[in-house]
Structure formats: structure tokens, C-alpha cells
């Protein structure tokens, strides 16, 4: 379980085993940043190794650096191990999550509750 804080009020929580790989979070994040459909500016991206059915999410957060939410667990920090996968590289160049100013669109779009908010 990953928690991202906005001040002391809001928390973003990721439970990777609930992820179904639909990608809505990625596109919702891009929509918040640029008001267009694009996965390229998202602060949250799908990490997929499809041949082995291994997938989860990578989040660039302000407080914890790069957060890698993998099926077997999570790790955070700029040097998070396992973050060198192909999907993780470009996220280092992106803006960190700003929680959409208090109403995270990724959590709103997630159909399974994999991403949720607390607080």
C-alpha cells in the first residue's frame, strides 16, 4: 500500500494487486495536465511486462520520489529497485503528482479501487 500526502489532508493509496491494467489512470492524469488525451505527461504510468503477466503502477510523487507499486509489493525513493523497466524511464522526466489540486483524477477513473484516496 502506497500513500502520497497532500499536506496533511489527502492521501493517495495504491493497491497494485487490484490493478487490471486498463490504463485509465494514466490518461486521466494526462487530461488533468494538458486537457487532452495523452499518456505522455502523466505522473502515474502502467509498468507492464506483458509476456509474464507482470504489471503494476509507477508514480512520481513529490514526497516519496519514484513509487513503484509492483504485484509483490511496493518501493519508493529515487533509486527504487525495479524502476528501470521500459515504462519507468520517461517518468523521471515528468512533473510529480500534484493530486490534481485535491481531487485526483486517477483515483476517480480507477474502476477497481486500485487507486483510492483517504483523508
Amino acid at each position: 500500500m502506497i500513500r502520497q500526502r497532500a499536506g496533511d489532508i489527502l492521501k493517495l493509496r495504491i493497491e497494485p494487486l487490484k490493478c487490471i491494467c486498463c490504463g485509465l489512470c494514466e490518461v486521466a492524469c494526462g487530461l488533468n495536465r494538458d486537457s487532452v488525451l495523452t499518456p505522455m505527461t502523466s505522473s502515474i504510468i502502467l509498468h507492464i511486462e506483458d509476456k509474464s503477466d507482470y504489471f503494476g503502477l509507477v508514480l512520481k510523487s513529490k514526497s516519496e520520489g519514484l513509487v513503484v507499486a509492483r504485484p509483490e509489493g511496493t518501493a519508493s525513493g529515487q533509486q527504487a529497485s525495479g524502476s528501470s523497466g521500459p515504462g519507468a524511464k520517461p517518468i523521471l522526466l515528468r512533473e510529480p503528482c500534484d493530486l490534481c489540486g485535491g481531487k485526483p483524477k486517477c483515483a476517480k477513473a480507477c474502476p477497481t479501487g486500485c487507486i483510492s484516496t483517504e483523508g
Binding site: 487490471i20 491494467c21 486498463c22 485509465l24 490518461v27 509474464s52 503477466d53 507482470y54 509483490e72
Partner: peptide
């Protein structure tokens, strides 16, 4: 695990593991 296509909230895809324990969540076998 079950796997969705883009934007699908109700996936029809089932990944079956036959060369390792289906409960294995780490990436072991390629």
C-alpha cells in the same frame, strides 16, 4: 490475474500460468 484492454472496467482476459505457481506474484519465469 485478469487483464483488461485499454479503458475496460470488466476484463475478459485471463492469464493462466502453467510453468510456475499461478500464485507467484514476482516476475520469476519470463
Amino acid at each position: 490475474r485478469t487483464v483488461a484492454c485499454y479503458g475496460c472496467p470488466y476484463p475478459c482476459r485471463s492469464y493462466l500460468k502453467v510453468f510456475e505457481d499461478p500464485r507467484e506474484m514476482r516476475m520469476v519465469e519470463k
